[in-house]
């Protein structure tokens, strides 16, 4: 599905991403965790073309997408959301949902948008300006909006951060429902219990590279992961 190899990005003397390598299996929710500054968001930016890598290759469904523009990556079926939702504030929720969709008649697009708004529980806000939404509603709108593109892979940057536990649970349930229908997810988050319950696979980043990958419980017990999070234990 997604194949990242030797990805590298330097900002001046800082190696933000330093040889990150991993694969995503189709139809699986994978969590990407790691301490602050370990390069998770930069990895997203590199995959989606927002930042050009100094080295490394990104393959999506077998196709080399390294160095493509964000819009080209998005059109291939690889969507993303942001840590802080990037909605079009003065446009309505429905307009946010519709603006970037190219396929289908307008009637079909609006129909699909309303269905997705129903799915995330925002039907009542369809005609509201996006700027009037609460933080949680913005996160949901951004998720619904990226789903309008019918992506096969979605990168979610902290979908649960700053969201109340009930809503976080609701978002997680939506992701599981979408996963059952075949969508692949890569999720950055710090809510460990939620992420561990959601993801089949966990990738751990530290200092710009992936230091561990596997099932949640294996990763949790990995000494390198414990070291990255808590420092070296003294005997």
């Amino acid at each position: 599905m997604l194949h990242v190899e030797g990805l590298e990005k330097r900002f001046g003397g800082l190696r933000a991403v330093d040889g990150a390598t991993f694969r995503l299996q189709p139809g699986v929710i994978t969590a990407l965790i790691g301490p602050n500054g370990s390069g998770k968001t930069t990895t997203f930016d590199l995959i989606t073309g927002n930042v050009r890598p100094n080295a490394g290759v990104v393959r999506f469904e077998g196709r080399d997408i390294t160095g493509l523009s964000p819009w080209q990556v998005a059109r291939l079926g690889l969507g993303r959301t942001f840590q802080l939702p990037r909605l079009f504030g003065e446009m309505t929720v429905l307009e946010n949902m519709t603006a970037a969709v190219r396929e289908g008649t307008l009637r079909e697009v609006v129909h699909r948008a309303l269905k997705l708004l129903d799915f995330v529980g925002l039907t009542a806000h369809a005609d509201a300006p996006a700027s009037s939404l609460s933080y949680g509603q913005r996160k949901l709108t951004e998720l619904a909006r990226v789903l309008m593109l019918r992506p096969r892979l979605v990168l979610l940057d902290e979908p649960f951060a700053g969201v109340n536990p009930t809503l976080a649970r609701a978002i997680a349930d939506r992701l599981l429902a979408l996963q059952r229908q075949g969508t692949t997810f890569l999720v950055i988050d710090h809510d460990m219990p939620l992420v561990m319950g959601l993801a089949e696979t966990v990738l751990v980043m530290d200092m710009g590279s992936v230091i561990a990958a596997g099932a949640p419980k294996d990763v949790r017990d990995d000494p390198r992961v414990r070291e990255a999070y808590f420092g070296t234990a003294r005997p």
Binding site: E90, T98, A99, A100, L106, R145
Partner: peptide, 21 residues
Amino acid sequence: RFGLRLLAIREDEGGADNLGI
């Protein structure tokens, strides 16, 4: 939809770019 794309650019060009515009 062309008008919406233009408005999306006005509101957040990077966001529009990442949606495939």
